[in-house]
Design a protein around this nucleic acid. Structure first.
Lengths: 330, 330
DNA sequence: GTCTGACGTGTGAACGCTAACATGAGCAGT
DNA sequence: ACTGCTCATGTTAGCGTTCACACGTCAGAC
């Protein structure tokens, strides 16, 4: 910067003013400085600027379970939204459910002097660890967990999406609707499970229609096989995510049951490939881009010390060929 | 830091030495400083340290097309590998194929004073833009592109994987093997296409057995429908990725052709869900973790100014139910 | 003609750390 | 007793910005 100042015949402070678009610089000086910058190929040192201002224009994003399409889609959408606001993203993908890993990641981000942090998490424990560690750094959570009112949150309307599924299936005449749920402790799994149970007729034995998976397609296959081995066959299966729904489709296929003729199947997420399963899968689409934009907007508000608020992104039902009317008499 | 120094009754420099595990500090002083640090809850300012040392312990990762499972899997694996070496990751997901977007991202990373950059890209243009912008910052490319010898590269052995597929199919007696290729300009698509063409018997008309997609399952479906509409049916289809293979499976199912009875199908990537397609998909597994570890190792070497070298991660054939012997007489 | 204010610019310190050198104590060898 | 070495620690000067303030200059008002 000193070189630029010398080349333009001004002080380093004037160069700084030009760089920051400070109004009190004459047009002529401004031009001379710009020429000197271009001539010397000068680039401002971002680290020194961060040290002097205490602001880095970088936000941190922490995602809990990156092997899933949901969190990783959210990460990428957030990064995209951040960049449209001229923020850059540092990220950590947690490998375990250990709260300590979350704590370490957050406190490193705080040390780094990041302008803000967005935490994408699906468990209460991870959320609590994040809030305990984030201190005064503006933080937004992408989660379905309840949070103290001081923190903004964003999530896709999980329960609403799941209720839409149940409304669709009930409207098609289904009553014995099985559910392949996600893992215990996962808040999305819990929200989808809750909506399923509430959408079931009161006289149906929910426990007999329920099995649990770990989000993987293999676990969906096994869960479906387990349910199909029980006395009363379901007429529809609502899987808590598309991958498990793939496993359900395969299980039904192997058992010689047609979809949707014998059994209807619904998933959740609308991942790539759902439109080309056999048959194409009815599912709930999560709008990651809207989620990412909302998270970034709320973080910007938090950085301006505006009051926290929460935003819920609606889920969209995508009806494909895997759902049809319930068979009479079953 | 001055407070800690005062509390421990030493100079700030001694505190710095303790923090950096400098040997020339007596055990007693070291203990007193540690106590003072704990007592005051002191945390070192990472930005100031970066300014003083010129090193940030952060690496940048740029991924070209984050909507695909490959690049996003690579990103997450790299992040994981980086953290085991005590490096943190700043990331950018490019939204377009514009070289200028790559250039902007890289030059911002350079400005940021990152210790190194890893670029995950599948196109020549993006690779060239990256190399033009990275300057003196150590850079490793995750790509199949040819690069100047000054740069280390890592990739999964695309051609080798695709050759394995052809060997398998030929061994099962297939000769009319169709290929659903990836988009033009994509280097992975080109490598897989090349291996397919070379693995075909000389007297088979390759053009009649080829169609192109854009990696999406829908495009795989359309490409398969196009090939199936031609006079001579293939006995096997090799799709350039699993998602397009899903589309192929659906197309075959709708045309009433059984898999693998009438037609065998092979994909590439082994994405989640491939084990539960109908039928489960034979495919090539890409080891993202090995890729990420190798990329990080090479970057560490580059940061130490060691000579560049390249590493190729082997691809693994996963045989599932979608492949079987070719029908006699077809 | 002096005062006032706005405007453009320069000066010094500060941000919080580390690198390089300086200092001083302790000890062994001559 | 003096030299020379090692070891532990302190002192000073940066790293490259921005911030707070001081300083001129010029216009307009009285």
């Amino acid at each position: 910067m000193a070189d630029v100042a010398a080349a333009a015949g001004v002080s380093h402070q004037t160069v700084s003013r030009v760089l920051n678009n400070h109004p009190a610089v004459s047009a002529q000086t401004r031009r001379r400085v710009h020429e000197a910058i271009a001539g010397l190929g000068y680039r401002r040192n971002v680290v020194a600027r961060a040290l002097a201002t205490g602001t880095s224009h970088i936000i941190g994003v922490i995602v809990s379970n990156t092997t899933l399409s949901g969190p990783s889609g959210a990460l990428l959408a957030i990064e995209q939204a951040a960049r449209t606001h001229d923020y850059w993203v540092a990220m950590v993908g947690l490998q375990s459910q250990e709260p300590s890993e979350m704590t370490d990641a957050i406190s490193h981000f705080v040390d780094l002097g990041l302008d803000g942090i967005i935490v994408v998490t699906n468990t209460e424990a991870a959320k609590d660890a994040a809030l305990a560690a984030c201190g005064a750094t503006p933080t937004v959570l992408v989660t379905s967990a309840r949070t103290p009112p001081a923190y903004s949150t964003v999530d896709v309307d999980q329960a609403g999406g799941a209720r839409t599924v149940m409304t669709l299936l009930r409207g098609l005449g289904h009553t014995r609707i099985a559910h392949v749920g996600g893992p215990d402790g996962d808040l999305h799994a819990a929200a989808r499970l809750g909506a399923w149970r509430e959408g079931l007729p009161a006289d149906v034995d929910a426990d007999a229609l329920f099995a649990t998976g770990d989000w993987s397609s293999g676990s969906g296959y096994r869960a479906a096989m387990e349910v199909l081995a029980r006395p009363a066959l379901p007429t529809a299966v609502f899987a808590a995510n598309d991958r498990m729904a793939f496993g359900v489709l395969r299980a039904l296929s192997e058992r010689g049951l047609s979809v949707p003729g014998d059994v209807s199947v619904v998933g959740f997420d609308d991942i790539e490939g759902s439109e080309c399963s056999i048959p194409p899968l009815t599912t709930i689409r999560q709008n990651h881009n809207a989620l990412g934009r909302a998270a970034m907007d709320l973080l910007l508000e938090a950085m301006e010390r505006k009051p926290a608020r929460s935003h819920r992104v609606p889920a969209e039902l995508i009806v494909r060929a895997s759902t049809g009317a319930a068979r009479r008499g079953t």
